[in-house]
């Protein structure tokens, strides 16, 4: 039987929709509409104005025959495959240090690790450009103290992507803070019981800490994969995708196709393929999580 609403309930409902409407409308106009429109563009040869003829699956066929797409995708996978595990490892190690008790000035250390995350990406990237400078850079100077010859960080196909990964590892403050929260949630009595049983620090870390923070690691892994595939600003500013496309990522190709070459249809197709890849990988991670993520 249909429920009858009182006039007060109806008024409240009206007020609810009135107050929520700016966000709902914003979502429809600025998010949902562009998403739907980009899906339509996949099947067109739309130019920079967003208008084009229907070409069926031609964009998808072209993309899988496009060597630059393959190159950009491989570069992106390389970045994700190295930077995501590295950032997880570093964040656990640093969060473990920041979780130590009875250390003076811990708040300063925590702030210091978090600040790079909230510093403007372009400014930080330009700064790193100087750190990586072959002749005058801080990094080569430091390596030189150990007898290492200067490395052409940004102008060598071998070193350019590692340089970007190093730079990204510097701004993992958010991952560290989330991991730190996970560490602080581990019940103290588990460690006390382990100590009574004679467990040393390594055993406590591998048998208690790591399993207990797996939900946090799972979250960081998913977010890391999603963000990793969307890497853009750093290679765009630092190397412009070079040298010889060694740091050219899929997001850079999407940007160039859309705004430099005026191929909106092609760019939309790549964007949807990227979405599909991220979605599949996220589902895989999610599926495997039941084997390695421990919930209390």
């Amino acid at each position: 039987m249909k429920k009858k609403y009182s006039s007060m309930e109806k008024r409240e409902a009206r007020q609810f929709y009135m107050y929520i409407s700016p966000w709902i409308l914003g979502f429809f106009i600025f998010t949902l509409y562009p998403v739907v429109y980009s899906a339509i563009l996949v099947f067109t040869d739309a130019d920079r104005t967003g208008v084009g003829d229907f070409i069926g699956l031609q964009n998808i066929i072209n993309i899988f025959q496009d060597p630059l797409f393959r190159k950009a995708m491989l570069n992106t996978f390389y970045f994700v495959a190295v930077s995501v595990p590295l950032s997880l490892l570093l964040s656990v190690l640093i969060a473990a240090l920041l979780n130590k008790k009875n250390i003076k000035g811990m708040a300063i250390f925590r702030t210091a690790f978090y600040v790079p995350f909230i510093t403007a990406g372009v400014a930080v990237t330009l700064l790193w450009g100087w750190i990586f400078n072959t002749h005058y850079g801080l990094l080569n100077y430091a390596l030189g103290l150990f007898g290492v010859d200067p490395i052409n960080w940004l102008s060598s196909e071998t070193w350019a992507m590692p340089a970007i990964i190093i730079m990204m590892s510097w701004s993992i403050g958010n991952t560290i803070i989330i991991t730190l929260a996970g560490l602080q949630d581990v019940p103290e009595q588990l460690y006390e019981s382990a100590e009574i049983d004679g467990a040393n620090g390594f055993v406590k870390f591998t048998r208690i800490t790591l399993p207990m923070i797996t939900p946090t690691l799972f979250f960081n892994l998913v977010i890391g994969v999603i963000n990793g595939f969307q890497i853009f600003t750093q290679p765009y500013v630092l190397t412009e995708g070079g040298p010889n496309r060694a740091t050219y990522t899929i997001m850079m190709y999407i940007y160039d196709s859309a705004f430099k070459f005026g191929e909106m249809g092609y760019a939309s197709t790549m964007a949807w393929i990227l979405f599909a890849i991220i979605m599949i990988l996220t589902l895989i991670v999610n599926y495997t999580s039941k084997h390695w993520v421990y919930y209390e």
């Binding site: 400078n133 072959t134 002749h135 005058y136 052409n152 940004l154 102008s155 060598s156 040298p243």
Partner: peptide, 9 residues
């Protein structure tokens, strides 16, 4: 200058 040198300044 090669790429490394031209990017040095």
């Amino acid at each position: 200058p090669d790429d490394a040198a031209s990017e040095s300044m």
